[in-house]
Every structure is written in structure tokens, then in C-alpha cells.
Design a binder for these strands. Structure first.
Length: 486
RNA sequence: GGCGCAUUCGUCUAGCGGCCAAGGACACCACCCUCUCAAGGUGGAGACCACGGGUUCGAAUCCCGUAUGCGCUACCA
């Protein structure tokens, strides 16, 4: 019989989704799709203080941009709705009450001041856990008195006082923890909201989640979760703790290292598939040579067994290469479309108005081989949109040339181009190449001068196509203007 | 401090006891191609497999210790 796969991505709406989170989502999705299972999105909004409005929408937008589709989620509902923890409070209370009734949990009335003091004195002793279990064994009378006092309690879980808890992590194998070193952690906060430990566990159970993929930072709290499952007499899911994504200096990736928000990469001109491919490779590999995967190939080949154990640095050089590769792989039509879409969303200063489809189609092949990102395109073709171009006249004069000979070349080119028909790259090239012989100059000399004359730049897209894109009238005017400056 | 995880070229990685005096990719360098820039092609440099002990006929691969890095140690996730 085949195993069931229900995998969930459970982000907190506390900021823009970052690349680490999204990589987890990609792994979740890959696993679900590969096994014909379900991919579920669940919003873990139990921390009211840290919640930021609008971030749930950003998470959804990020997943949509990447083309990751989910089967159940806050926006589309599903059999286990709702998919927002703030709307599932009764479920958590029910579990907490049950645990209290079964003496597996207790109310704690300690003030934050007392907790801080206990923590401080205990940390000096070294090794001791942070909470002294003060309220674990208080008498019923005392409990009643505190209750009457109006103290709003939290609910803590009674960790076993001895023994060990072992998890069989899908990536790291067996990991064992000493129960004595684990606190009686808070399950329910005094505001009535659950902590992550209770909430995610109740939901994973209720939603019949089979595989939990999450960041490595959760590994130390697994004994809490496993003990909670035991107390609730629920079957725990499979766990896989993913390696974290690092900054170039090996510290945790954060804003000061540059872009960490997934959607920033859209704005920087990366293709969604580049992100999916690249992020998947950050922590997973198929073999010793394959790096470029279509989404179908990713779904086919992905496996938890081949996820690596150690953290990986987010290397933008390789990201750039991969993006360039995928841009080059597109048809001219698709690139043109992508460019238009990108320029429409993020209008570049170099281009006064969104070009027509026709113009975009003309631009695409001009820049395709030269792009690392979509953002690189506009500066390369800026000359096409400038009413007049600026450059230092000396730039026109190529090596071993002088003003007079350069001027002769430009005038000859202008005269010839004036009558050329059709005014297209191929005949333009044929014409200019034949001129090279007649004028007794090097190809680089003539072309170099013309490049500066027509684009104002020493570095530009291929000359003949550029001239075609410029059109006869503008080209003639530009070349005329150039020769007059000499 | 305690607990846990990790450790192969600058970076991402292959390697699950002999095929490894360690393979691929990005970045870097050189050459070729070439109208500039790219792209592409070819080649090069780059890892005593963190260190020290074992186990074994044989270890990057297994075990132990040390070091380093990272994570956790909240009424945050």
C-alpha cells in the first residue's frame, strides 16, 4: 500500500516571505506533487504582537508568482477549514483543557517578573532549565486563591521529569534528548492564544498532516512536540528538519546582507522558475552533475533522502548565471512578453513609456544573450528611446584613426544607408562590410565609430540589429550629427 | 554556561569502505570565436576531504575525542 502525503506550509504573517521560508514551501509542494498528495497552506497567526497586516497576502502572492499551487488554504478553503490559526482557537482550548483534566498540563500564575528572576538566577548555575515548575505542584487551595486574585494564567505542559525522547528525523536520523533538560513550556498564553507548540500540533493532527518539513531551528523543540503527541495519544507525523540558508559570512541570512524577501527577486528581474530551481538546489541535489531542472523534472526527482544536512550560503553569482541561462533559453516572443510585463510592473527610467509588442519583439533578440536579469535590459536599449544621445566626440575616433578619416567613414556610411533597401540587419551588414574594403579601414574601426554615433556608447548590442531597430531616419540623423561634430 | 546539529575547492555540491593522488557547477584566469559587450568552445588554477586518535588488508566514507560554526535555551515563530 502506498503512503499518504499531506504536506503543509505554515508561515507566520510577521513580515515579507523570505527565501528560507519559501524554500521550505517549495520542498513541501514538491513532496506533495511527487506523491500525488495534498499541499496545504496554513497561516500561523498566533502572535498578535508581531503580526503585520498584509503579509498573508504577500505570502500568497509569492507562491503564486512561483507557480506553486495549493490544494487547501486560507483563500480557497478546504475540507479542514479554517486555515488560519486565529480562527481555530476553540480547537486549541479543547486540547489544553483535556490535558489539564488528564493532569498532563497545568495553569501557571507566575508573573513575568518572577519568571525573569528565576531564569536569571538559574542561568548562573548553568545548565538548569529556565522555569522552576513553581506552579506544577501547588495545592488546590493555593490555586483557588490565585484564581480569585484575578491573575490570568498561562497553561504549561508537564514534561516528564526523567527519561529520554528520541526522534527519527528523515534527514538527520535518530536524535535523542534528555527530558530533564526541557522546560514545562507554555502551550496557551494568557491572552488565550496558543503558542506555536500547541497550535501547529493540534492543526497537523486535525488536518491529518503526514510530513512536517521545517527549519533546523525547530529540532531542539521536537521532544516537546513528541511528548505532547504522547500525552494526547495522537500519532506524530514524520519530521524532516531542513538545513538553514546562510549569508556569505556564514551568519543567518538577514536584511543587511541584501535581498532576503522572495518578492524582491521578482523586482530585481529574476524569473520565477530560476528561483524555484535555485532554491531547490540550495540544500538538495540529485547527482554530481545535474543542476538545471524543469519543474516536472524537479517533481519527478526530488527526494527527502537527498536533502543535505549542512547550511548553504545563498550565492548570488550562481543565481545570476542560472537566470541568464533561463533567459537565453526562452523564445524571443516569450522574452518580449516577460520584458513588457516586467517594465509594466516596474517602469525603468530609461524607457519613457511602455513600448509596443512589436518594439519589444525587436528588442528581445538584441539583449537576450546579454541579460542576467530582466532589469539589465532597459539600460542596454536606452539609446532607442532617447530623443538625443550624448557622448564625447572623441569617442567616435577609433584606434589609428583621426578626425578626418572618421568623418569620411561616417559620411560614406550615411550616403550608402540613405538608399539601402530593405533597411534590415542583414543588408545593412553586407553593405557596411563591403564599405570596409572600399574605405580601406578595419571592420572594428568603421563599426566602432558607427556604434558611438548611433548609440552614444562604446558598449552596445550588435550594431546591425541596433541600426535596424533605430530605423533609417533616426540613423541617418545620428550619423549626420556625428560627422558634423568632427 | 547547558543541550542539539553541522564540518569535501572561494561558493553550491558528488562521494554512503577499495572505481578518489577526490568528480561537476558558479566565480576566477588564459586561449579560440568575434563589429564592442555578451553568449559559446577549449584549457588552467583551485580541497593534504576541520584536527587528533582508533576500527580495517584498505577510510573523505565507520567509531571516539577536540576545535570551529550555527541553532535552541521567550506568554516569538
Amino acid at each position: 500500500m502506498s503512503e499518504r502525503f499531506r504536506v503543509r506550509f505554515a508561515p507566520s504573517p510577521t513580515g515579507e516571505p523570505h527565501v528560507g521560508n519559501i524554500r521550505t514551501a517549495i520542498f513541501d509542494w514538491l513532496l506533495a506533487r511527487q506523491n500525488g498528495g495534498e499541499f496545504i497552506v496554513r497561516i500561523e497567526d498566533t502572535d498578535r504582537a508581531r503580526a503585520i497586516d498584509g503579509t498573508t497576502e504577500l505570502i500568497i502572492e509569492a507562491l503564486k508568482w512561483l507557480g506553486i499551487e495549493w490544494d487547501e488554504g486560507p483563500d480557497i478553503g478546504g475540507r479542514y477549514a479554517p486555515y488560519k490559526q486565529s480562527e481555530r482557537l476553540p480547537l486549541y482550548h479543547k486540547a489544553a483543557n483535556r490535558l489539564i483534566a488528564e493532569h498532563c498540563a497545568y495553569k501557571c500564575y507566575c508573573s513575568t517578573e518572577r519568571l525573569a528572576a528565576v531564569r536569571k538566577s538559574r542561568s548562573k548555575q548553568g545548565g538548569a532549565i529556565g522555569y522552576d515548575r513553581h506552579c506544577r505542584d501547588i495545592s488546590d487551595d493555593e490555586r483557588q486563591r490565585l484564581e480569585l486574585n484575578g491573575e490570568t494564567p498561562v497553561v504549561r505542559f508537564k514534561m516528564p521529569l526523567h527519561g529520554e525522547t528520541t526522534v527519527n528525523d528523515l534527514i538527520r536520523g535518530e536524535v535523542t534528548f534528555d527530558n530533564r533538560l526541557v522546560d514545562d513550556f507554555v502551550m496557551l498564553k494568557s491572552d488565550g492564544f496558543p503558542t506555536y507548540h500547541l497550535a501547529h500540533l493540534v492543526d497537523d493532527h486535525e488536518m491529518e498532516i503526514t510530513h512536517v518539513l521545517r527549519g533546523e531551528e525547530w529540532l531542539p523543540s521536537v521532544p516537546r512536540h513528541l511528548q505532547l503527541y504522547r500525552a494526547l495519544k495522537w500519532q506524530p507525523p514524520h519530521f524532516a528538519h531542513l538545513p538553514i540558508i546562510l549569508a556569505p559570512d556564514r551568519s543567518k541570512l538577514s536584511k543587511r546582507h541584501g535581498a532576503t524577501a522572495l518578492l524582491d527577486y521578482r523586482q530585481m528581474g529574476y524569473l520565477p522558475h530560476t528561483m524555484v530551481n535555485f532554491l531547490t538546489l540550495l540544500g538538495w541535489s540529485l547527482d554530481d552533475k545535474t543542476e538545471l531542472f524543469s519543474r516536472e523534472a524537479l517533481i519527478e526527482h526530488f527526494s527527502i533522502e537527498r536533502i543535505s544536512k549542512s547550511g548553504a550560503i545563498f550565492n548570488t553569482d550562481k543565481l545570476d548565471w542560472m537566470n541568464g541561462h533561463y533567459i537565453r533559453e526562452m523564445s524571443a516572443e516569450r522574452l518580449a512578453e516577460a520584458l513588457l510585463e516586467f517594465w509594466n510592473a516596474y517602469p525603468p527610467p530609461e524607457i519613457p513609456a511602455l513600448p509596443s509588442r512589436e518594439v519589444a519583439l525587436q528588442i528581445a533578440p538584441l539583449v537576450q544573450e546579454r541579460l542576467k536579469t530582466l532589469r539589465d535590459a532597459a539600460p542596454l536599449v536606452a539609446f532607442l528611446f532617447k530623443p538625443e544621445i550624448e557622448y564625447d566626440a572623441s569617442e567616435l575616433i577609433q584606434r589609428r584613426m583621426d578626425a578626418a578619416s572618421t568623418r569620411r567613414c561616417l559620411e560614406a556610411a550615411r550616403d550608402q544607408l540613405a538608399t539601402l533597401d530593405p533597411f534590415e540587419a542583414e543588408p545593412i551588414e553586407a553593405l557596411l562590410r563591403s564599405m570596409v574594403e572600399n574605405l580601406d579601414v578595419k571592420a572594428g574601426q568603421l563599426f566602432g565609430s558607427l556604434r558611438v554615433a548611433t548609440t552614444g556608447q562604446r558598449v552596445a548590442p550588435p550594431l546591425f540589429q541596433s541600426i535596424e531597430a533605430l530605423g533609417r531616419e533616426r540613423t541617418l540623423n545620428l550619423v549626420q550629427a556625428a560627422s558634423e561634430r568632427l
